[in-house]
Computed example of a mutant assay.
Amino acid sequence: MRHAAFVFDAYGTLFDVHAAVRRHAAAIGPEGPLLSDIWRAKQLEYSWVRSLMGSYVDFWQLTEQALDFAFDKAPSADRSLRQDLLDAYWRLDCYPEVPAVLKALKAEGARLAILSNGSPAMLEAAVRSAALDTVLDDIFSVDQVRKFKTDPSVYDLVATNWRLYPNSISFQSSNRWDIAGAAKFGFRTVWINRSGQPDEYRDHPPSLILLSLEGLLAGA
């Protein structure tokens, strides 16, 4: 047994955040990739700013606001697709290896959970759509503390609820800033660097870097 507890970030780690725009790529037009990149970047920026201000609103509201900004920055994209894109965000595709990896870890007796900025309703919808509800033990949302990652209280949700020391929990995320926050909190961290991004936050390094979650089954 590698670790007894595995916790996964949701968006970008289990679920492809660009799947919503890709699903409507033909209708959006050539600015689709730009729209998707801005949408994601602003979604995260708004979460950090809201945490610093102490002005929490749930992640779904940030997702809507970020999409509106993205349309303003990509004016040739068809704004009439706004609701279609928002609807698609509730059922994002998971990455191809995700179901098999989680099932294999579960079969070994591991405890599995999601720890995400997403609202409870968003996460439950995504998990059901990807048929991951049968393998996950818990879904932890920042809604419980009304702060976003990388606030330490977010990572403490898992340690407190599971009554485990942080270093006994393996935390997986594709977001390097999330890995930095989790490492500082004390988790064993695995950066899923799917797109080969350069390293940053070098004073809070990951325990391991993988190209996909499949590496967790190779003795990681």
Rank of each mutant, 00 (worst) to 15 (best):
S51E: 12
H24P: 04
L44R: 13
R50P: 00
D9C: 02
L44K: 09
V17T: 15
R50S: 09
E31I: 02
D9I: 03
A26D: 12
F15G: 02
A4N: 11
Y11I: 05
V57L: 14
Q65G: 09
M53F: 14
F59Q: 05
A4R: 14
T13P: 01
L14W: 00
A25N: 03
L44G: 09
A26V: 11
L35W: 07
F59E: 03
W39V: 01
L35G: 08
H24N: 04
F8H: 09
L34R: 13
Q61G: 12
Y46N: 11
Q61W: 08
A19T: 12
V21R: 08
A5D: 05
R50M: 07
P33I: 11
V49F: 11
G12E: 03
I38H: 09
Y56V: 09
L62A: 14
I38L: 11
Y11Q: 01
G29W: 01
A25L: 04
R2C: 03
L44Q: 13
P33Y: 12
G29K: 00
I38Q: 06
E45L: 14
A10E: 01
R50F: 02
A20D: 10
S36T: 09
R23W: 00
G32M: 07
Y46G: 10
E64P: 02
Y56I: 10
A26T: 10
V21C: 15
G29F: 01
F8N: 06
I38N: 02
F69E: 03
A41N: 13
A19D: 15
L52H: 02
A27N: 03
T63F: 05
L14I: 03
R40K: 10
Q61E: 15
E45Q: 15
T13W: 01
L67T: 08
Q61L: 14
A25K: 10
L35A: 08
H3C: 07
R50C: 02
V57P: 00
V21W: 11
A26M: 01
V49Q: 14
G29Y: 01
A20G: 08
W48A: 10
H3Q: 06
Y46R: 12
F8C: 06
M1P: 04
R2I: 09
A66S: 14
V7Q: 05
F59N: 05
V17Y: 10
Y56L: 06
L14M: 00
G54N: 08
A70R: 07
L67V: 11
E31R: 08
I28W: 01
I28D: 04
L52I: 08
S47K: 05
D58K: 08
L52Q: 07
G54V: 08
R40F: 13
L34H: 06
I38F: 10
Q43F: 11
P33S: 12
S51D: 13
V21Y: 11
A66T: 03
E45F: 12
H24R: 08
R50Y: 09
Y46A: 12
G54S: 12
R2L: 11
H24S: 04
A27Q: 13
I38W: 05
A4S: 14
A66R: 02
W60R: 09
F8P: 05
P30A: 04
G12L: 02
L14G: 00
H18D: 09
A10I: 02
I38C: 02
R50K: 14
V57S: 14
K42Q: 15
V49D: 08
I28H: 03
Y46S: 10
R22P: 07
A10T: 00
A25D: 07
S36G: 15
H18P: 00
D68H: 07
G12M: 04
D68T: 11
T13D: 00
M53V: 06
D37M: 12
Q65M: 12
A10C: 10
